[in-house]
Amino acid sequence: MPLQEILLQQLANGLILGSFYALVALGYSMVYGVIKLLNFAHGDLYMVGAFAGFGCLSLFSGWLGAGWAGIVPSILLSMVAVGLLGVVIDRIAYRPLREAPKLSVLITALAVSMVLENTVLAFTGGQFTAFSTDLGFAGIDLGLVHVTYTQMVLVGTSIVLMVVLELFVSRTRYGRAMRAIAIDPDACRLMGIDVNRTIALTFFIGSALAAASGVLAGVYYGSINFFMGFLIGLKAFTAAVIGGIGNIPGAMLGGLLLGLLEAFGTQIPGIGGQWKDVFVFAFLILFLVFRPTGILGKPEVERM
């Protein structure tokens, strides 16, 4: 393999992996942006989404097949189901703690994560489930790199979802309400904004995005398990911080950057292989030292 081909292939690898991180990072960033909560259960919603999508596909594959005709409705249904789950979680676990110290909500988020993981563990018996689809390995050759249709759909879906989300937050009334709550929830209440409903909407969208990403991961990698949300939750959180937490285009950039760092980090002689994660996270530390607010985050102004 010539060096040029290796680098192009790693670029493709990084972008594909990065779009997964970006999709999950969006939800993290959105929820943090609005209520300043690090929702540690977010990675687990990705996992629940994968299982919901798997369940739907098992039902649909009889008459729609296990190709895209069956997968697309499964993704949509899973997004709705997990979106509602996100709303329920907010209603039960987070809303009663709205006025409580931030640390209490953080611990609650960890607890929610455990509850989700162990519930799915109980239902699946801890078994790894094979997510079989009819998607083949067909694709097109872009120069030296073979890109499958599945990979193209995957990256395309991520980009479309991110753009739609950005438009929603920047152009609609609901988006404006979310941004307003991020600045001052009490003033919003006085202005007649239904704060709790807007926060519920935020959870719905964030959770639905995690679910979409989870089903896509299941489709792409072909294996799902109750623990699959843990590592990606951690990575997505990292991506959100790199991008500037609370910032939507930032989460996208952070996700893609992290994916690329991992792919190229593996390739660096001497560092790759054993030291890949050290390389990636050392970069994170350095990055945050020199730019604590992330790529697109704005420094917080404290008025006295």
């Binding site: 292939q9 790693q10 690898n13 594909i16 997964f20 991992e262 792919a263 593996t266 390739q267």
Partner: peptide, 8 residues
């Protein structure tokens, strides 16, 4: 879940 970089 993603070994693409290692595979390359």
């Amino acid at each position: 879940q993603d070994f693409s970089a290692v595979v390359t």
